[in-house]
Amino acid sequence: MATPLSASTLLTALRDEGLQVVEHGSWRTHNRNSQGAWGPMNGVMIHHTVTSGTDSSVTMCYDGYDGLPGPLCHGVIAKDGTIHLVGWGRANHAGLGDGDVLRAVISETALPAVAKADTDGNSRFYGFECVNLGDGEDPWPAAQLEAIEKAAAALCRAHGWSSRSVIGHKEWQPGKIDPRGFTMDAMRDRISERLAGEPDGPRNPPQQPPATYEPFPGAAFFTVGRHSAVVTAMGERLVAEGCGKYAVGPGPDWSEADRTSYAAWQKKLGYSGTDADGIPGRASWDRLKVPAV
């Protein structure tokens, strides 16, 4: 058993292991601590998101969804291997699981077959959600698998745990299948090998040009008859955010499908009534981040 790491200690541990880390919002204080215990900690749990796309997956894990408030994990592991931190403290990721499994994790012995759900896992496990559809066909890039290995190893190293302290959601809760697409035994072997050596050390962040986005063109821009590449770029971002309502397209001509899709985006941001009428406003436009065309 161990006292939970501080947010700063976690960040240092991940970066010392050689990971690229992105901090989101108020992740250091974003938690569900008011709903139950956080700690003592016993291990690391790996999940898959059943989503595609980094931005939308991170947003979902930060905010949660109807019936399950966020954060839904502590870090999201993207396909490029980047770790996106979305919460620290109790998170809605593990749920109720098998107490016999917890006892095996604590003693770092072989896991029993999961058979019951009688123990709160949200208080005992760090959780990482990995971006993957979980259909057995969506690939697991080498960079993502390496990041899972490194993230779990970083926490094990910080607490003095072995790789037996790392489990999959499917090894904790009956009926779960995640992570699907690789075996946890193989991942534990990788983690064990990494723990036998020294951490890679901090890496320099990649030098990337700043993103350039389309400035808000004004509400009057979005009228019938408007033909512009900006409309196409907007529609493509709406599709990427899961708000596309297009039967065909998107395309350059402003249409009812564009308005309906944008209304879905406004509702996703929490707007309602006339604030979700499908006509872009500056605040929602800036958050959509339409690439400059």
Rank of each mutant, 00 (worst) to 15 (best):
M1C: 14
A2C: 15
P4K: 05
L11Q: 05
L11Y: 03
L11T: 12
R15W: 05
Q20H: 15
W27F: 14
A37D: 13
M45I: 15
I46R: 00
T51Q: 13
S52V: 08
D55S: 15
S57Q: 05
D63A: 15
G64C: 06
G64K: 04
D66Q: 13
L68P: 00
P69V: 06
G70Q: 01
G70D: 07
P71E: 04
L72I: 12
V76M: 05
K79L: 12
G87C: 08
N92M: 01
A94I: 11
L96R: 03
G99S: 15
E108G: 08
A110N: 14
S123F: 01
F125V: 05
E129Y: 09
E129S: 12
D135A: 06
D135F: 06
G136E: 09
D138V: 05
P139H: 09
E146Y: 06
I148G: 02
I148F: 06
K150S: 10
A151C: 04
C156M: 04
H159P: 10
G160I: 03
I177M: 13
P179D: 03
P179G: 01
T183E: 13
D185L: 11
D189G: 09
S192L: 02
E193W: 01
P199C: 10
G201N: 12
R203C: 09
N204M: 10
P205A: 02
P206M: 03
Q207E: 15
Q208G: 11
A211P: 12
G218I: 13
V224A: 15
A233S: 13
A240P: 02
Y246Q: 01
G251T: 07
D258E: 12
A263H: 05
K267H: 02
K268M: 06
L269S: 04
G270S: 06
D275F: 14
G278S: 07
G281Y: 01
W285I: 01
R287S: 15
K289F: 10
